[in-house]
């Protein structure tokens, strides 16, 4: 009897890690929410006025700092950036979607690391601890999935710490997408000497991201209209949304590919890549604020470097 109860609890814990991010992504954020945080909308607050190159640099700097410093600094960084979403158009809504996305990243990453991280790695991450607190013993056959015999508290903490390294960068990168038009990015990347074919691919990708979510959303809703999951409990809705989302991938790709050819023809027949260089009618100048931001970035990296040199806030070991 105990064996059965243990198995049920083990599978529930396992499923929580799989289902919770899906529930947050599909049930709370929804495809429409994803479209909102991947689409440019006109507004006039701080981020919108920054030079696109500075916003690209911002993501890079956040990535550098998050990889260098102790996890809680990354977490702090992620929360501060998330709070700054409130300055965007429909800021509160975007901050809410961003926080749900952040939570799904944290849960998903934690569950990907916690049960799989061997004690040897945990010993490096937690050098001052000789024993780890076992929270749950997995059934032996979970080893097939690479699971360690026990789920430990330290494993969970380690998973959370790792997740913030991804979270801060992801939250920062979305700011670029939400506050910059594709053509502004084209100009910025071109000035940074990135080759035009790569820049154009990025530009088309940026233009396509909201369309991807829009098409997926339409396809999912069409399946619901046709009766998918209609006779099931509403609590199972996220699962049917996931099924519908997976089924929608192929028609969405085909639909977008048909459009992508037109985009390529439209650009090529207007002389795209006619010459190695191109001119720009509307230039995006570097403003004083942009230079201040560069200063702030340098200071941030500098402070992180100094603190690391002084032995404070090092990324490894994870807990000082």
């Amino acid at each position: 009897m105990n064996y059965i109860i243990d198995a049920i609890i083990s599978w529930l814990i396992f499923l929580f890690g799989v289902a919770a991010p899906f529930y947050l992504i599909l049930g709370v954020i929804g495809i429409g929410g994803f479209r909102e945080i991947t689409k440019y909308e006109v507004y006039n607050s701080f981020y919108y006025k920054l030079n696109p190159a500075i916003k690209i640099l911002f993501s890079v700097v956040v990535m550098i700092i998050a990889s260098m410093v102790i996890w809680w600094i990354s977490a702090l960084l992620a929360i501060v950036i998330l709070l700054s979403y409130t300055s965007l158009r429909n800021g509160r809504r975007k901050a809410f979607i961003g926080s749900m996305f952040l939570l799904s990243v944290i849960i998903g990453t934690t569950w990907s690391y916690a049960p799989l991280t061997p004690p040897a790695i945990l010993s490096i991450a937690f050098p001052h601890q000789t024993t780890f607190l076992d929270l749950w013993k997995w059934p032996s056959y979970f080893a097939i999935m690479g699971y360690q015999p026990y789920l430990t508290l330290q494993g969970l903490i380690y998973g959370v710490q790792i997740s913030f390294r991804f979270a801060a960068v992801t939250i920062a990168a979305l700011i670029l997408v939400m506050t910059t038009t594709p053509s502004q990015i084209l100009k910025a990347l071109h000035k940074l000497r990135i080759p035009d074919p790569i820049v154009f691919s990025l530009m088309v990708a940026m233009k396509s991201v909201p369309m991807v979510f829009e098409s997926l959303d339409t396809s999912v809703k069409l399946q619901m209209l046709r009766g998918l999951g209609s006779d099931r409990s509403k609590y199972l809705k996220p699962i049917f949304m996931l099924i519908a989302g997976l089924s929608a991938i192929v028609p969405t790709i085909v639909h977008l590919m048909r459009g992508a050819k037109d985009i390529a023809i439209s650009a090529d027949t207007r002389g795209f890549r006619a010459y190695n260089r191109r001119t720009y009618f509307v230039d995006i100048p570097m403003t004083r604020t942009d230079y201040y931001m560069v200063g702030l970035f340098l200071a941030g990296i500098g402070v992180a470097g100094i603190m690391l040199a002084l032995g404070f806030g090092r990324a490894i070991p994870y807990i000082s």
Binding site: Y40, S183, S266
Partner: peptide, 29 residues
């Protein structure tokens, strides 16, 4: 040869109208 396609949404690349019109001449340097 200038080419106009069927679906406007699939050929307009830029966010601002002026940027869209300037796209071709910019490519021609």
């Amino acid at each position: 040869v200038g080419t106009l396609l069927q679906d406007p949404e699939r050929q307009v690349l830029n966010y601002k109208v002026v940027e869209e019109i300037a796209f071709g001449p910019e490519n021609l340097n």
